Amino acid sequence: MTITVQALSGHWSLVSFVYRWPDGRELAPLGHARGQLLYLLEDGLPGRMAVQVVANERPPFDPDGDASLAAHFRSGFAYGGGWSLQKDVVHHEVEIASLPLWEGSRLSRQVRFVGDRLVLSTDEPNPQLPQKGYETVLEWYRP
């Protein structure tokens, strides 16, 4: 599939979310996870985007327990804002996020299609794993 704004637009569901090292090792930071990704167009051009990813298995929630609140905060992420596409890189202009340090930032992701699956990846470190040397890979399908 050719990488265009029309090919990216719409609703995507998460297949997998992993960190991958050059030696082939992988880590699924949320274990089995589920998520949704939306790319909306406005007059045929990139408009708004939103993403949410959460762990399938989360401990019981205790609204009065700080440890429970922290565990649930660490069990996923979400953000939204504008988006643009430059060749095979999609840029997310983050306006609102579950991680405040992402707000006002640009998160760029390499885009490729594998069959009918959308694969977004980056080698930028993130707050969960700040050291370098791995790639974050999220694979999506259209439900």
Rank of each mutant, 00 (worst) to 15 (best):
G10P: 02
G10N: 08
H11P: 04
S13I: 12
L14W: 01
V15N: 01
S16R: 10
F17T: 07
F17H: 10
F17D: 07
F17P: 02
V18T: 13
V18K: 14
Y19C: 09
W21H: 11
W21T: 06
P22F: 11
P22G: 04
P22M: 11
G24E: 06
E26D: 00
L27R: 12
A28L: 14
P29F: 07
P29K: 14
P29Y: 07
P29D: 13
G31W: 01
G31T: 08
A33G: 05
R34H: 12
R34I: 14
R34P: 06
G35T: 11
L37R: 05
L38I: 15
L38K: 11
L41N: 05
L41W: 11
E42Q: 12
D43E: 14
D43V: 00
D43S: 12
R48M: 03
R48V: 09
A50F: 04
A50L: 01
V51L: 05
Q52H: 06
Q52F: 09
Q52L: 05
V53R: 08
N56W: 10
N56P: 09
N56D: 15
N56R: 13
N56C: 14
R58Q: 11
R58N: 01
P59E: 06
P60R: 13
P60I: 05
P60S: 09
P60L: 12
F61L: 11
D62T: 01
D62P: 13
D62M: 08
P63I: 04
D64E: 13
D64V: 09
G65W: 10
G65S: 15
A67T: 10
A67M: 15
S68I: 06
L69T: 11
A70S: 10
A71P: 11
H72L: 00
S75Y: 03
G76P: 04
G76W: 05
G76F: 09
G76M: 05
F77I: 04
F77R: 05
A78P: 01
A78L: 00
G80K: 04
G80C: 03
G80H: 03
G81P: 02
S84N: 07
L85V: 07
Q86P: 00
K87W: 14
K87S: 15
K87I: 14
D88R: 10
D88H: 01
D88I: 05
V89K: 08
V90T: 12
V90R: 05
H91N: 09
V94D: 01
I96G: 04
A97W: 00
S98L: 08
S98Y: 10
L99C: 07
P100A: 07
P100E: 05
P100R: 07
P100Q: 06
P100L: 03
P100N: 04
L101N: 15
E103W: 04
G104K: 03
G104C: 08
S105F: 08
S105Q: 07
S105R: 08
R106A: 02
R106F: 13
R106H: 04
R106D: 11
R106V: 14
V111C: 03
R112V: 13
F113P: 07
F113N: 13
V114D: 15
V114E: 09
D116E: 14
R117F: 03
R117E: 14
R117T: 12
L118A: 05
S121C: 12
T122I: 07
D123V: 00
D123L: 00
D123K: 06
D123Q: 13
D123N: 15
E124Q: 12
E124C: 09
